[in-house]
């Protein structure tokens, strides 16, 4: 290479070849990357109200597990997944709905009556009846459906369930 501003035919050809190769690489590379990462780039939306049953089905002061099944299309396959929530009726009208997913690594917690606690089978986490962490690794209390994500309509408890 010389310092002169004139480039020789050879250098020009070299440059053009490298640029050309780069162009092909980019034209296939970018769509290729989007193609590979596509599932992560898709926003999966969708909310539905799920009814958990009439209020009087639930015993006061004892969390009850309610499960429901939703099917979704993942790629070309329809999968039915089961989800669970704990419904705790605190008084005649006051209801709290917890997600049954442990806030640590999303294992499913169970209500153990003797201990009066939600116990996670994976890493021995425990939550009290209000969902607060009693022990173990979880970083925060159990998630609740509250505010605009839960309502009682005609005596039936409903939660706004986010799909995805």
């Amino acid at each position: 290479m010389t310092d002169s501003h004139h480039i020789s035919r050879r250098d020009f050809i070299k440059l053009a070849t490298i640029v050309g190769g780069g162009v092909i690489g980019t034209i296939i590379g970018i769509p290729g990357l989007v193609y590979l990462l596509d599932p992560a780039l898709k926003s999966e939306q969708g909310e539905t109200w799920i009814s958990l049953g009439p209020l009087e089905n639930f015993e006061i002061g004892k969390p009850t597990l309610v499960t429901f099944v939703r099917s979704r299309v993942n790629g070309w396959e329809k999968t039915s997944s089961s989800y669970g929530v704990f419904v705790l009726r605190k008084s005649e009208t006051d209801v709290v709905v917890f997600s049954n997913l442990c806030t640590h690594l999303h294992c499913r917690v169970n209500w153990v009556e003797e201990k009066r606690a939600f116990v996670c089978p994976c890493h021995d986490a425990a939550f009290d009846i209000d969902g607060n962490v009693l022990g173990g690794p979880p970083p925060r209390p159990l998630d609740r459906y509250e505010g605009e994500h839960a309502k009682i309509e005609d005596g039936v408890i409903k939660i706004l369930f986010k799909e995805g």
Partner: peptide, 13 residues
Amino acid sequence: WPDSLYKDLIVSM
């Protein structure tokens, strides 16, 4: 390189 390769590249492009 680069005399032949650049022809190859043009055809490939």
